[in-house]
Design a protein around this nucleic acid. Structure first.
Length: 456
RNA sequence: GGCCAGGUGGCAGAGUGGUCAUGCAGCGGCCUGCAAAGCCGCGUACGCCGGUUCGAUUCCGACCUUGGCCUCCA
């Protein structure tokens, strides 16, 4: 099945094919680890996790790198504020990040390069840029010379003139051109630093991704992904650095950008303060509902986050898991789960996850009606490609079971059964009301009475 | 101000030049001791104004409006 994606570089949907038919290379800009991430930060990782799953079905090898930025001014500030080494900060939050991502059902990337492990390649790349006339040292800094790269601005649709004229930030005196950006900056003794030809310093943010991408995936990669807010200046700068360091070779053949998550109508961001941490949300909501919500809009569109939206996702999953519970006794066919063509086709069409979810609903209807091994396998297979329906139905409905006293509930259900047998419906209904008060919903079925934790 | 992306039924959210999105919620019926679940059915949705067209939510233009980027940011 052919795959097409929107390419931010050409601004159109193009049929996808990797440079090497045997191997797809993909890079996603990862977090700067100085704090817990919010749910908006998780949208890209979830969306591109689905992309990686799709690509792995189509190509023998997919090398997916998601970096960790572990040297940065904000990290320095956090470390100084707490009086610890930066490693204490970055180690803690890198692990928190992995935990959060795993909690959302995101498969670990193949590679997780860290900036501080790549100082020599970063320095080497900067040296190449200087040698090629694309960068210059000034007052302990090394800056990229934007005027040396005429295509600067192609990705974001800006021209250099405009950037110079519209510069809103105070221009550092050592810059030749206001749009020039830093590749290397000096460090003071109280800050982390590495020896370099330009003195003790640390890398600028943009060069890290260029160097790590080159080190692990080569000079030209197939897909570079990230949030739309990184389009400029981050990705624009990466293109400039990598292209100039590689003698004009194409840096990334596809650029894919996910839209922003909004909350209260505004972009969710740390600087606006309207954030919900993944770490916290995972404690209070079923993780798959969070994931479903993130996939319920097309990845390039903005997506609004709200309690109501989470509740709707929970209800949707309730319906699907009810089907799976109804077919729990049906044996799956031997072998790997199949991937239904309808779900795959939706994803092959520029990763149309809302369409894929609509197809999944159809598969749930079919499984409920047919109760066949094939229909059950199709539902589970479609879910698996999206990273959904990954738990046992009973676990889903018991919501992990930690907060409820299952034995007490079963006892009440037994009493209700006895009351009903005696046709004492007043008592039976009283027991049901008691369960409702405990937050337990019940269903009488041919197989007996089932209970589940009501959605919060 | 410049560049970019949107405005779809109660909510969420795809898509398309002319019979259907889908989910959640709601309403009616069947079923049920009653519920729940399930099944059947229901709602004349595409910002506004023009234009193109036999026909536009879908194409074109103006307008109104929301958001993103231009600074760290997924």
């Amino acid at each position: 099945m052919p795959i097409s994606f929107y390419n931010s570089l050409s601004r159109r949907i193009e049929p996808f094919s990797p440079q090497d038919p045997q191997r797809v290379t993909m890079y996603l800009c990862g977090p700067t680890v100085y704090n817990y991430v919010h749910i908006g930060n998780a949208r890209g990782p979830v969306v591109f996790d689905v992309l990686a799953r799709l690509l792995r079905r189509h190509y023998p090898q997919v090398v997916y790198a998601r970096n960790i930025t572990d040297v940065d001014d904000k990290i320095n500030a956090a470390a100084q504020a707490q009086g610890v080494e930066i490693g204490a900060i970055t180690g803690k939050f890198a692990q928190a990040y992995r935990d959060d991502m795993a909690g959302l059902g995101i498969a670990a990337p193949d590679l997780e390069p860290r900036a501080t492990d790549h100082i020599p390649p970063i320095i080497a790349m900067i040296e190449r840029l200087i040698a090629g006339g694309h960068a210059y040292a000034a007052e302990g800094h090394v800056l990229f010379d934007v005027s040396s790269y005429p295509s600067y601005g192609n990705l974001s649709g800006r021209d250099t003139e405009e950037l110079i004229a519209g510069a809103r930030v105070e221009v550092a005196p050592y810059k030749k051109n206001p749009a020039d950006f830093v590749l290397w900056k000096p460090s003071t003794p109280d800050l982390p630093g590495w020896n370099s030809p330009w003195g003790i310093g640390r890398p600028g943010w943009h060069i890290e991704c260029s160097a790590m991408s080159e080190a692990h995936l080569g000079e030209t990669i197939d897909i570079h992904a990230g949030g739309i807010d990184l389009l400029f200046p981050h990705h624009e700068n990466e293109i400039a650095q990598s292209t100039c360091a590689h003698g004009g070779k194409v840096f990334a053949r596809w650029w894919m950008h996910n839209g922003m998550l909004t909350f209260d109508g505004r972009k969710m961001s740390k600087s606006l303060g309207n954030v919900l941490l993944v770490h916290e949300l995972l404690k209070t909501h079923p993780p798959e509902a969070l994931r479903l919500r993130l996939l319920s809009g097309h990845y390039r569109q903005p997506l609004d986050w709200s309690d109501n939206a989470i509740a709707q996702a929970v209800s949707t999953l309730d319906g699907w898991y009810r089907v799976l519970r109804d077919v729990a006794d049906i044996e799956l066919p031997a072998g790997d789960l199949p991937v239904p063509g309808s779900v795959e086709a939706a994803l092959c069409d520029d990763l149309n996850t809302p369409q894929a979810l609509a197809e999944l609903s159809q598969l749930a209807d079919l499984a409920r009606q047919h109760r066949s091994p094939e229909a059950k396998a199709a539902l589970l297979g479609g879910g698996a490609l999206l990273g959904l329906l990954q738990q046992e139905p009973e676990m889903w409905f018991k919501r992990g079971g930690s907060a409820v006293d299952a034995a007490h509930i079963e006892a009440l259900l037994q009493q209700r059964l006895e009351a009903r047998s005696a046709r004492d419906f007043a008592r039976a209904d009283a027991i049901r009301a008691e369960l409702t008060a405990l937050g337990i919903a019940i269903e009488d079925s041919a197989q007996g009475t089932r209970w589940s934790v009501m959605k919060s």
